[in-house]
Each structure stands twice: as C-alpha cells, then as structure tokens.
Amino acid sequence: MDLQLDQLRALDAVLTEGTFEAAARRLNVTPSAISQRIKALEEAAGRILVQRSKPVRATESGLAVLRLARQVDLLAGEAARELGEANRPAGRPARIPIAVNADSLETWVLPALSRVTGGICFELHREDEEHTTRLLRDGTVMAAITATATPVQGCRVEPLGAMRYQALATPDFARHWFPDGARPGSYAEVPMIQFDRKDDLQWRHLRATNPEPIDPPTHFVPSSTAFAEAVRLGLGWGMLPDLQTETERAAGTLVNIDGASRIDVPLYWQQWKLDSPALNAVAAAIGAGAVTALRPVT
C-alpha cells in the first residue's frame, strides 16, 4: 500500500472531529480536499475505511489504518521538532490521547501529568477502568490506565499499583439505615450511589456482604466529584477511594459502614509499542505519580 501522510492525517481528523467539514477546519483545507484524500486512501487500501454517517465512523479496516495514522503522525511530529531549532521546534505539539478512569483523573493523574514538560498536549478520555482497553483496541487512544493486566495486541503493559476503596456514608446515614450495624441482608432497602451502569464496585461489596441477590434503591451520579458529594450529603452509601476521602475519614465525617470492608482495584498502564519520546515521557510521569499515590499491588 502506498499511503500518503496527508491522507492519513485526513483520516485521523475525520474520525476525531466526526465530519468532513470539521476535519477541513482542523487541517485548514477545504472539505473537498478532505474527501479526495479519504477517497485516495481507500483506493490505496483497497477497501472502505469510513462510514459516511453523522458522525463519521471507522469501519473495521478503518480502525487498523487509524492506528497507523496516529502512530505515523506522532513520529513525524517528533522528527519535525527534532529537526527544528532548539529554541523554536518545528511542527505542532505531540497530541497523546489517553483513556483514564474517573477516580484516577479526579485524584492523582493530573498531578502526575503536570510533570511532563514541553511539546505535549493530552487528550483525556474518561472511561471505566474495566473498559479502557476498548479504546486502545479501536485506536482512539495510544495509552490507557486500565484494570486489565493482559496487554492489548500491539501494546505493552506495566503495573501501576492499586486504588483502595471503602464503603462509606455519613455517620447520620449509617445510624439511620444500619442501627444494628451493616449485616448480611441489611442492605436491601438502603439507598446506594452508583457512578453509571458500568460501575461494579458497589455490587462487588454487596455480593461479598449479602448472601442473597438484592436490588437496593440506587442514585446514578456520573461524576467523580458529584458522586463523592452525594455520599457526603447523605443521599446514599458508595465505594469511595481512600485518595479522595482521607480528610473526611480522619475527621469522622465519613465512616466505613461495616467497619472493615475494603476493595483494592489494581491499575495498569498500557501503551502502544512505539518508540516515541513523547509517549515514553508520559509513561514515566504516570509511573512516578503512581508510586506516590497508589498502594502496591498484592
């Protein structure tokens, strides 16, 4: 296949922006030029790469070429900067798309990424840690913080550590709903906070503490900050990370509802196998941040 850099960049722009018009604005060309480049790329590949829908979507073949396009664009940009003057590097900053679970994003990831200096922009995709590998597989991201230790094809994986969660509520909530303590079977009518329908942490706690299946009343709060606030306001109990609740637990304004249960969620860093200084710099910063913030994986 004879794939041209401008064609690959057009594919990346179309699938990132969702329309030919938005891709044209991003690359400062006309929509017709984008259409011509995509057509030429499809002819070179010998197959359809994008579905002309709104938004534009990649076909299975398109996802394979998209991964190549983003790898080539990253390496080409790094070469341009290396060839530029030391104080005026050529080309755009490297753009590193990363999938991050909400609690890591809320607590330790941004301080870790702040250690990365010069020539790198982050595109953060929030996704549950159990599902971030999907974004690696389809080429949406180059790296992910994930709960999956098995590497995605074409990726390498490194352990980061574990986030510890506790089943927390306010003291008033715990006294009202668990006057005799949180015992097996006592959770059935107790309001629960859940992040979204992918969030399994509360259910893991329920399966461990209740012998029979139950269906408690549930508030869905799809924001890490608002989730914690809902627990603090007494709307329900929820599994909250120690990193987010240290002050409240020390002050007694949040308590472990059964006094003992903990869930440690191991986290891993997966990234494309690509000799990219920018991607490796991000990996190093994430690794250093994890050493400070996370518990060792046992």
Score class of each variant (00 low, 15 high):
A40E: 08
R126I: 11
T245P: 02
L274Y: 01
R9G: 02
I257K: 06
E82T: 15
A251E: 14
N28G: 14
Q271L: 10
Q194T: 07
W203K: 07
T16G: 07
F195H: 12
T19R: 10
A188H: 08
A10H: 11
L136K: 06
Y268V: 07
E123P: 06
I34D: 09
E158G: 00
A169F: 03
Q166D: 05
R137P: 00
V255E: 02
A69L: 05
H131S: 14
V141E: 08
F178C: 05
G185T: 14
R95N: 12
K39N: 13
E189I: 05
M239K: 04
D200T: 13
L124H: 13
A250D: 13
T19C: 08
R9A: 10
P216L: 10
T245H: 01
D275T: 10
A293C: 03
D2K: 15
R95L: 15
A182G: 04
Q7N: 15
S224I: 03
A143E: 04
A290N: 02
F173I: 02
G289D: 01
R156K: 12
L49C: 08
A24S: 09
A79M: 13
P55A: 11
I38N: 04
W108H: 04
K39Q: 15
A80D: 05
V116S: 13
P171V: 07
I48C: 00
A260S: 11
L75Q: 13
D172M: 08
T30K: 09
Q51N: 07
A260K: 12
G234K: 01
V221A: 05
P159R: 06
R37G: 03
L105Y: 13
L75I: 12
A86S: 11
T218M: 10
L74P: 01
S104F: 00
V291S: 13
G287F: 03
P89Y: 07
R52F: 09
E85K: 08
P241I: 00
L8Y: 07
P266V: 04
T133R: 06
M142Y: 00
A290Y: 03
R95G: 08
S35Y: 12
G62I: 03
V152Y: 03
